[in-house]
Every structure is written in structure tokens, then in C-alpha cells.
Amino acid sequence: MNRVACVVRSHSRDKWSWYVLPWFVVGMAFVINWAIGALAAEGDVFQTGGIASIFVYMFVSGCISVTQSFPFLISLSVRRRDYFLGTTIMASAVCLGSAILLYALTEIEKATGSWGIGMRFFTIPWIDSIPDVGRIWMYLIVLLLMFFLGFFISCWHRRFGRIGLWLLSIGIFAAVTLALVLTTRYERWDDLGRFLGGFSPLGLISWLAAPTALLFAGSYLLLRKATV
């Protein structure tokens, strides 16, 4: 446990990458969108989609975290298991804090009349009717999914190298293409739409916990055999 705590402390020292940069990116996207909306001044409510920046950043953070910290911490005699647990704790804490902050900013956005210019930056109408805790959960699970997707890719690259990463990319592309072709060939898009439409927004997003768990487990297995 002491080594896990050491990993968490090591990550927490990099305040720029974990705490400052993600919200700097969000802040810059917000300022740009607000300026454009203020200059347009049409009076209509408009959706920016800028909230996606925080989710993209978590994906990138997962991709670079292994490269930045894994060799250094392993050189300090930290076990791979301890590194994985410490990184997971750090990422989970950051994602939870970000989810709570996203919820708070959404409420501020509503209270200010969409920042006075009708700009929906944080509000997502699709999930707006979900209770408060449910929205925090949805933000959290998507943030974790994006982080562990990036983390899994980074672990795969460290385990199998550049060629392995190319093969993984080709395999994913081929699988997605085949799924799209078969769905179109057998005219199953309507069936898929009805199936997904049977879930509430909260239920649909909650299903993302399954691929998140698979990425979590896969990352650990890859990291156990990864080269330093």
C-alpha cells in the first residue's frame, strides 16, 4: 500500500497535467465559443459541443500517462501492480472531481441564462432531465471510459510495439467496417434504433461501465508483461 501511495503522490506532483491543463483546454474552448456567440448576438439558444474537450483530454491523458511515468516509477522499484493501482486511483479521483465540476458548471449555466447569450456549453439536453447524482455518474463513467481507452492503447503499444499498435488499429477498423456492412446488408438499423431507444439515457450510458471494466482489466494484463 505504501508503494501505491507513492505512485499517487508522484502523479499528484504533476499538477499541470492532471489538474490545470484539462480545465485550461476547457476554458479556452469556452472563451472562444462565448466570444463567437457574443459577436453573433442572434438571441437564439445554440449548442456548442465544447464540453467534448474534457473527454478528449482524458483520452489523451490516458495515452501519455504510461509513457511519462511508467519507466521512471518502475526504476524506483515500484511493482507493476502498484503502479497500475496508483494510476487508477489518481485517474479515478480526477475523473470524479471533473464530473462534479461539470455538474456544477451546468447548473451555473442554467442559472445565468446560458451565460447571457444563449450558449449551451456544458448543458446536454439529452441528459438534462436526469437526477443530479445520475448526471454526475454519467459524466464519471464517460471520463473513465475515455481515460482507460487511452491507457489501454498506451499499454498495448508498450507491450507489442509499433507494429502491434498498427495491427490493433487495422483489426478495430476491420471489425467496425464489417459490423457496418452487415448491419446495412441485412437492414438492421431500424432494429438497432428500437433496441437502443428502449433504454433511458441513464441506462444507456451505464452500459459503458462494461467496456470500461474490460479496458481496465486488459490494461492491467498488458502492463504486467510490458517492457520498461
Rank of each mutant, 00 (worst) to 15 (best):
T106N: 04
V133K: 08
R81P: 00
V94Q: 13
R135A: 06
G27T: 08
R159D: 02
S61Y: 12
G150K: 02
P125C: 06
A226E: 01
A210I: 15
G203I: 06
T212R: 15
L165R: 03
V56L: 15
V142Q: 12
Y139T: 09
F59P: 01
I205L: 11
C155L: 07
A40D: 12
A111V: 04
G164Y: 05
Q47T: 12
L144I: 10
M138Y: 10
T67C: 04
G150L: 04
L165A: 09
L204W: 14
D132S: 14
T112M: 05
I205K: 04
G198I: 09
Y19K: 03
Y57S: 02
L149S: 14
P71L: 08
F160I: 05
T106F: 00
M119I: 13
T227C: 07
I172Y: 05
F199L: 09
F173I: 15
I136A: 05
F160Y: 14
D44V: 14
L215P: 03
R80E: 05
M90Q: 11
H11V: 03
W189S: 12
M119C: 03
A226T: 03
D132F: 13
L143M: 13
T184E: 10
R80Y: 04
F30L: 11
K110E: 10
I172L: 12
G150Y: 03
F46N: 08
S114T: 08
R135M: 11
D44H: 09
I64T: 13
F84Y: 13
F30N: 00
K110H: 11
W137Q: 09
V142N: 11
I153W: 02
K110T: 03
L221F: 08
M138K: 06
L167P: 01
A226Y: 00
W156M: 02
A226L: 04
G43Q: 09
A174L: 12
M58W: 09
F122K: 02
L105Q: 03
T88R: 02
I54D: 00
F160G: 01
A213S: 11
K15F: 13
A111P: 01
H157C: 06
M119Q: 07
G218P: 07
S114I: 05
T112F: 02
V56C: 13
G150E: 04
V26E: 00
E107P: 00
M28D: 00
R162G: 12
F55M: 13
G113R: 06
L208T: 09
G43K: 07
V176A: 11
L214K: 02
T212D: 15
N2C: 00
R158M: 10
Y139C: 08
C63M: 15
S69T: 10
L223G: 00
L192E: 03
L140Y: 10
G97T: 06
I172F: 07
F152A: 07
